[in-house]
Simulated assay, not measured.
Amino acid sequence: MTIADLIDWFEGWAAPSWQESWDNCGWQVQPGVLEQPPQVLVCLTPTLAVVQEALALRQQGTPVNLIFAHHPLIFSPLKVVDRGNPVGEMVRLALLHGIGIYSAHTNFDQVADGTADVLAQLLHLQDPEPVVPTDAGIGYGRVGNLPQPQPLKSLLLTIRQVLSPPDVLFSPQADLSQPVQRLAVLGGSGASFLKAVAQTGAQAYLTSDCKFHQFQEGRDRNLVLIDAGHYATERPACARLVDHFQRQGVAWAGLSQQDEDFRQFLTPL
């Protein structure tokens, strides 16, 4: 198998044509590695730390030649590639060392075993279906029933146990003893889908990056809004990608250990 074969297989599963118009999926840096056997480092966000991790793995004998990321490296057009610009520096290092960088973002959000679907599986949602269908069997978010109703407090503790977020925010008016049966999930920034989630009959909605007024909107739509953080809600799908790549027979695939949440919370002193 070559890198070209791997990307062809992936794009047959999560077609780049499904990405949103504002998105930038696909190759971010392609330094002529298509015919090489894939040695893939999977990450949520491509950062200098991840690129340096790839270089360190090379020094240790694992010749990483592809960083496969969920978030795009390049969102806005680059005006300069230089050492003073983090994105420019990553592009420079990738070209210099022959490491490709590929992104699967909103196309990967929609598919089976994508970001939302993996959350639904981890929380054992029954008969999950897209919150917003975009094509046959795919779409944004997932909604389904828990195996049995459980108190909101129990659900929050399960989310903390399964996803290990640094913190969990939830609607302040919520009664922790209230039973929750129907749950919607969407990894990453999903508060813009509140109206669609409310129409599914969900009682609670797990997502991230929720703002003050979005918690207010959730209350007004009779939804318990749960924010477990961007990293915690999307990182599990990256781990699942490693499994998929290994089953495809790639030479080496591993999950980045330098991926970062970018947030810390002060614990009570």
Rank of each mutant, 00 (worst) to 15 (best):
residue 52 Q to E: 15
residue 170 F to D: 02
residue 119 L to S: 04
residue 124 H to M: 07
residue 62 T to K: 14
residue 137 G to Q: 09
residue 52 Q to N: 15
residue 141 G to Y: 04
residue 173 Q to V: 10
residue 81 V to Q: 14
residue 164 S to C: 12
residue 163 L to F: 12
residue 67 I to D: 11
residue 47 T to C: 12
residue 161 Q to M: 03
residue 159 I to M: 01
residue 101 I to F: 06
residue 146 L to D: 00
residue 41 L to P: 08
residue 144 G to T: 03
residue 132 V to C: 10
residue 65 N to Q: 04
residue 45 T to S: 10
residue 50 V to I: 14
residue 114 G to K: 06
residue 166 P to Y: 12
residue 91 V to L: 11
residue 48 L to Q: 15
residue 110 Q to V: 01
residue 52 Q to R: 15
residue 105 H to Q: 09
residue 38 P to R: 12
residue 77 P to E: 01
residue 39 Q to W: 14
residue 114 G to Y: 06
residue 44 L to D: 10
residue 88 G to F: 13
residue 139 G to V: 00
residue 174 A to M: 09
residue 126 Q to F: 02
residue 118 V to A: 01
residue 165 P to C: 01
residue 135 D to M: 02
residue 71 H to N: 08
residue 167 D to W: 15
residue 163 L to T: 03
residue 130 P to V: 00
residue 169 L to Y: 15
residue 59 Q to E: 14
residue 145 N to C: 13
residue 57 L to T: 07
residue 160 R to Q: 09
residue 82 D to Y: 13
residue 134 T to Y: 00
residue 110 Q to A: 05
residue 162 V to I: 08
residue 126 Q to C: 07
residue 68 F to M: 14
residue 38 P to T: 07
residue 124 H to C: 08
residue 59 Q to W: 02
residue 94 A to L: 12
residue 91 V to K: 13
residue 133 P to W: 07
residue 153 K to G: 00
residue 112 A to K: 15
residue 158 T to Q: 15
residue 55 L to N: 09
residue 40 V to Q: 06
residue 132 V to D: 04
residue 70 H to I: 03
residue 107 N to R: 10
residue 171 S to T: 13
residue 119 L to P: 01
residue 89 E to T: 15
residue 100 G to H: 09
residue 51 V to A: 09
residue 98 G to K: 10
residue 173 Q to L: 13
residue 161 Q to E: 12
residue 99 I to G: 11
residue 136 A to D: 12
residue 101 I to K: 02
residue 124 H to T: 06
residue 71 H to I: 07
residue 156 L to S: 01
residue 107 N to H: 05
residue 123 L to Y: 05
residue 133 P to Y: 10
residue 74 I to E: 07
residue 150 Q to L: 09
residue 124 H to K: 09
residue 108 F to P: 03
residue 76 S to A: 13
residue 125 L to Y: 04
residue 51 V to K: 03
residue 132 V to N: 04
residue 67 I to S: 08
residue 112 A to H: 15
residue 124 H to D: 12
residue 105 H to S: 10
residue 127 D to N: 11
residue 158 T to L: 14
residue 63 P to G: 00
residue 116 A to D: 02
residue 139 G to Y: 02
